[in-house]
């Protein structure tokens, strides 16, 4: 295995050992089973312990797998759980902003709409749950690309289509937008995807600060903007909503 890092291999071997057979092992057992010097084994165990992957029993001094390892396997947030958590907050965002609300997550090379609340007027609207939006030019997409490294590389590797004259497609321009998004904590799309349409979005984080989705509003430029920028009141409402959903996810008390 060219280029593999020995200490990582050894750490993996220790975890495998602790996962099988006897559940708790002492330092001597671990070192001798794996043919390691005691000092080396101890160094690796200490690092794993700091990361929460291994725990040491205080009484016996023996080692066992840590809680963080279990959490790692369960960390995936169900998108339908996300929708259920977001429901009240997104309803309220639609009411206070007067615009339609979308909740999106990364899916393959784009943004999958997992929740949609109608604009609160009496117009006919069609539910867009299940629709896809592009990553590089929508507000939801930019937020995901700015905060989620997987979304970022998808956006860089994918074709960045020019939907309107305002769509940014060059990498440096796109990166600059992402920097700005991270600096401000929100992203906009001013007629970069659809003519006459603006949107603004903010990130939703789970309890471990992982970006799990983005929430935003979309509407006609004349309603959404003032002097060429999205109204501050609307930006604040979107950010409030994103924070409330994040806070709700932070409780970790899933139904």
């Amino acid at each position: 295995m060219a280029g593999s890092i020995q200490s990582v291999e050894r750490a993996a071997a220790i975890l495998r050992l602790l996962a099988g057979g006897e559940r708790r092992l002492g330092l001597t057992d671990i070192a001798s089973t794996l043919g390691l010097a005691k000092g080396t084994a101890h160094g690796i165990l200490r690092t794993l312990q700091q990361e929460g992957f291994v725990e040491q029993d205080t009484a016996s001094g023996r080692y066992q797998l840590g809680a963080e390892l279990l959490r790692l396997g369960n960390s995936y947030l169900d998108v339908h759980e996300l929708r259920a958590r977001a429901l009240v907050w997104t309803d309220d965002l639609a009411r206070s902003s007067g615009e339609s609300v979308y909740l999106g997550v990364l899916h393959q090379q784009g943004v999958l709409i997992v929740h949609h609340v109608f604009r609160p007027d009496d117009s006919r609207q069609v539910l867009e749950i299940g629709a896809m939006q592009p990553l590089h030019c929508t507000a939801l997409g930019k937020v995901l690309a700015a905060y989620d490294p997987v979304a970022h590389s998808e956006a860089l590797e994918g074709a960045r289509e020019e939907f309107t004259p305002r769509t940014l497609t060059a990498v440096p321009d796109f990166e600059a937008v992402l920097d700005l998004t991270r600096a401000r904590g929100w992203a906009v799309d001013l007629e970069e995807t659809w003519d006459g349409v603006a949107s603004v979005a903010a990130p939703i984080h789970d309890r471990r600060r992982m970006p799990v989705g983005a929430v935003g509003i979309t509407g006609a430029v004349e309603r959404m903007c003032e002097n060429g920028e999205v109204r501050a009141r609307l930006v604040a409402a979107v950010r409030d909503c994103a924070r409330s959903v994040s806070r709700d996810l932070g409780g970790g008390r899933f139904q």
């Binding site: 309220d92 206070s96 409402a237």
Partner: peptide, 12 residues
């Protein structure tokens, strides 16, 4: 449903 106080409080 959870406590909806804070979201609403900003805009009522």
């Amino acid at each position: 449903m959870t406590d909806t106080t804070e979201a609403a409080a900003s805009s009522h």
